[in-house]
Design a protein around this nucleic acid. Sequence first.
DNA 1: CCTACCATACTGCCATACAAGCTTGGAAGG
DNA 2: CCTTCCAAGCTTGTATGGCAGTATGGTAGG
Lengths: 248, 248
Amino acid sequence: MLESLNIALPTIDQTRPIAPQLHRRLRERIIRNELRANQKISESEIAEQYGVSRQPVREAFIRLAEESLVAILPQRGTRVRPIALSAVRDARFIREAIEADIVTLLAQRPDPLWLAELRRLLDEQRHIAATHPQAFIAADEDFHRTLSSAAGKSGIWQRVQGLKSQMDRVRFLSLERFDVFKLVVQHEAIVDGIAIGDPAAAESAMRLHLREILKDLPIIATENPDVFDEPSEDVEDRVIHFQGGERS
Amino acid sequence: MLESLNIALPTIDQTRPIAPQLHRRLRERIIRNELRANQKISESEIAEQYGVSRQPVREAFIRLAEESLVAILPQRGTRVRPIALSAVRDARFIREAIEADIVTLLAQRPDPLWLAELRRLLDEQRHIAATHPQAFIAADEDFHRTLSSAAGKSGIWQRVQGLKSQMDRVRFLSLERFDVFKLVVQHEAIVDGIAIGDPAAAESAMRLHLREILKDLPIIATENPDVFDEPSEDVEDRVIHFQGGERS
DNA sequence: CCTACCATACTGCCATACAAGCTTGGAAGG
DNA sequence: CCTTCCAAGCTTGTATGGCAGTATGGTAGG
């Protein structure tokens, strides 16, 4: 019955492998909350929507299940997993640990060329923040990915991508919420720490930055109770207490 | 033609989902280097070996490909991926970052109960090191997993498991190589740092511990050139230079 | 002897059919 | 009215057939 609408949503390129395309599209739809939490999605249903057979859909489901984006219950069905606060906090913790080490590395051997690139990204961010704040997420991704590359750890970023799914879902829910200018200032503090070769300053700036989401998390969870699977318990996440602020 | 041999290798339980079982078995065979690097394995070949159809084999391959254990080349074949030194180093870097933060956390709030458990594990390790050194890997896993649990981050360990595949392959190759007693001593240093509530000491002890593999890596790579895909280039891995040794 | 080409066998990918388990709704019995 | 049970229609899991693209080995032509 939806066949007339199929031409509306981006279609599938039949000449290239279908399963990965489906994986990307479905992943996107889940993160954008277009496929809502706890919604049941069957293989045959999705197969009809995209005009393909069940098999590639099934393979896409397997990948989504590995990212904890869907839950496959044998003989019972497949549903979109609600966001687990614990998973978000775990992902955030991992990310903080990794990126803290990355900027420490960078501050120990500041590279003028990479610093110039980072400064350029900061300018870009200021511009975007003033004009297209909704495009800031992409710029933020660029910034953090560039930090990884600068440290010679570009492979790291790809590996962490899989863990970021849950964080991305939260970010989408809080699109207009966060103060983009504040984030740019935090980015600047990180770059400054690297530039003056102060690892401790760069590290603490990064840790502060990545803890921003912890403040909004309970709010977002209570505002969107149907998307989360825990009733926003007030368990405080244990974070490292570090000394040495941005001046040290 | 291998049908008569099938009863030899652990068979498949036909009553439970087959694909996950195949995934585990194949993963194990790759890590144990039973399926050697660059060896071609086709869906139909494996399907015959285990007496199942090609479909569940295919799904197992997909999972293995996500862990970078196999490479699927469309219409060309599937082969066991050789170990990429860069992937091992990336996984090690991530693990160091995470576990450094975990022990920092623990040292900030030492918990007598968990410390007792850790001490017990250390005793166990000393015993195993003296009697069944080949069983040390499992004990080592226990130790690190317990640290995660003690920090209230048990979810973290599971998430990192996927990244550990490549490290596990290396560890299997260097089974008798490493000095288990030295590793136990390093474990003790970590626990001591936690016990006296010195985050810096615990952190540096952990970082030192997880850098052990970096020393052996080039040796292992040159000793098993056919298992690695890079000719053991002497690119030094950038690691954080931290101050404050085990005494600070 | 060397090169270009083509037939063949093999691969992974997709579609389809079949099997087995679970949910659900309604009917039968109390 | 409530409970029990069963059957139809879901679901995912597995098996099988066909397709398109690729490596390979032999052959015809130079």
